[in-house]
Simulated assay, not measured.
Amino acid sequence: MRSSRRRPLLVPVLLCALALLAARPTDGTDADGGSGTALGPQVARLYQDAATATRQYEDGRRAAETQRAKALEYERLLDAQRQKTDAMREDLGRIARAQYRDGGGLPLTARMLLAENPDELMRGQRAVSRANQAVDRAIGENLRAETRLAADEAKAEAAWQALDKRNAELARLKKKIEGKLEAARSRLEGQADSSVAAGSCPGAVRLDQPDLPAGPAWVAPVETYELSASFGSGGSRWANLHTGQDFAVPVGTPVRSVGAGRVLKVSCGGAFGIHVVIQHAGGYYTQYAHLAAVAVDQGDRVEAGQWIGQSGTTGNSTGPHLHFEVRVTPEMGSALDPVPWLSEHGVPLR
Rank of each mutant, 00 (worst) to 15 (best):
K165I: 08
G315A: 06
E344P: 01
P41Q: 05
T318A: 09
T224P: 10
S267H: 05
L108R: 11
A138D: 15
A159Y: 08
D49N: 02
E65Q: 09
Y285K: 05
Q287V: 07
V277G: 01
P320A: 10
M1T: 15
R94F: 02
A260Y: 00
L113P: 06
L149W: 09
D59M: 13
E153R: 15
A295D: 04
A158K: 07
S194E: 14
P25F: 02
G103P: 04
L170H: 03
A64H: 01
H290Q: 01
L264N: 03
G232I: 07
Q56E: 15
R76T: 15
T66S: 12
A110C: 13
A138M: 09
A335V: 09
L20S: 10
A150K: 13
P340K: 11
A17Q: 08
G283F: 03
L10A: 09
T52I: 11
F324A: 08
D30F: 00
K180V: 04
S129H: 14
E325Q: 04
D300M: 02
G124P: 00
Q48S: 09
E116F: 03
A134N: 12
P330I: 02
R187E: 11
A239Q: 03
G203Y: 00
T54C: 12
R68T: 15
R111K: 14
K155Q: 15
N142E: 14
M332Y: 11
G203M: 01
N167Y: 02
R61H: 09
G234E: 06
V196L: 03
K155N: 15
R301I: 13
S195Q: 06
E325T: 12
V276A: 04
D211E: 10
E90R: 01
T37D: 11
Y284D: 05
A110Q: 10
P107Y: 12
E58A: 12
G305F: 02
Q48E: 11
V326H: 02
R55S: 14
S236D: 06
G282D: 01
R187F: 10
